[in-house]
Structure formats: structure tokens, C-alpha cells
Amino acid sequence: MTVERPSPDDRRANPEELDTAFRVLRHRRRRLACYVLLEHETASLSDVADAVAGWQYATGDGIVEPQCRRQCYLDLRHTHVPVLVDAGVVRYDEESDTLSLVPCPEPIRDLVMRACAFETGS
């Protein structure tokens, strides 16, 4: 029995996709939102905002106040999520107010995972 492996072409991102991915992932909040979504098939925008604010400012002995989290939520809602959606990295379901990485091409998802390891790994 032969196991079907993806051909090198399937695993390779096309240059345009990579250009887009590097452009959208250049902002830390967008990266953190994607890192959160790696673990959760869908998550509400509110939960992602909690996690992004917490991850950015509260790890270790930090504290995030409501005002900081609110700013993070507004930045995601009005700036970062639309950029991620336009780039085809994230899907936003307006009705359920949820985000997901479902449309993200596999090579870009892999890039997000590697960035997460580089940025937040021990």
C-alpha cells in the first residue's frame, strides 16, 4: 500500500500567497489572533480579543485592565480582522460573530505555527 504524500508543489506556497501572508502577519496583534485560532476551530471575536490582550500584556506577572482589552477588541474588529479576512487567512462570520482559520492555505497555517514557536516558544 502506498501512502499518498503531498507533492512538493502542494506544500509550497506560491509567492503571491507568501507576500500576502508576510504583509498581514507583520502586525503582532494579527499574529496573536492567528495563534489563538490555531487551537480553536472557531472562536468569538470577544474571546479572541481577551486572549490577544492577555497574551500580549499579561503573561508573567502582568495585568490587563478593561480599557486595554477594549482597545484591543476595537483594533481587532475595525482594523486587523478585516485585513486578515481580505487576505484569505481568516473567516469572520458576522451572524455568529466568530472567527476561524478555515480558509487559511496549509503553507500559511504552517508559517503561522512556526512564527508562534519563534515568538512565544521557550
Binding site: A51, A58, G62, C116
Partner: peptide, 29 residues
């Protein structure tokens, strides 16, 4: 869960009161 590739010092907790966000606190704190 946060992704497994994240370091063990990356945790935090979030406290809500009803729907209201109260605070996010680092696990060390």
C-alpha cells in the same frame, strides 16, 4: 489551550463578571 509550541511561561487567565471583562492576569502573578 494555547498552541503546544508556545513556551510554558506564556499562560494567563481572564476574569469576567457576567459578560464584562474584569482583568487578564499572568499565571505567575
Amino acid at each position: 489551550r494555547l498552541p503546544e509550541v508556545a513556551g510554558p511561561n506564556q499562560g494567563f487567565l481572564v476574569v469576567h463578571e457576567g459578560d464584562e471583562f474584569v482583568a487578564a492576569i499572568g499565571l505567575e502573578a
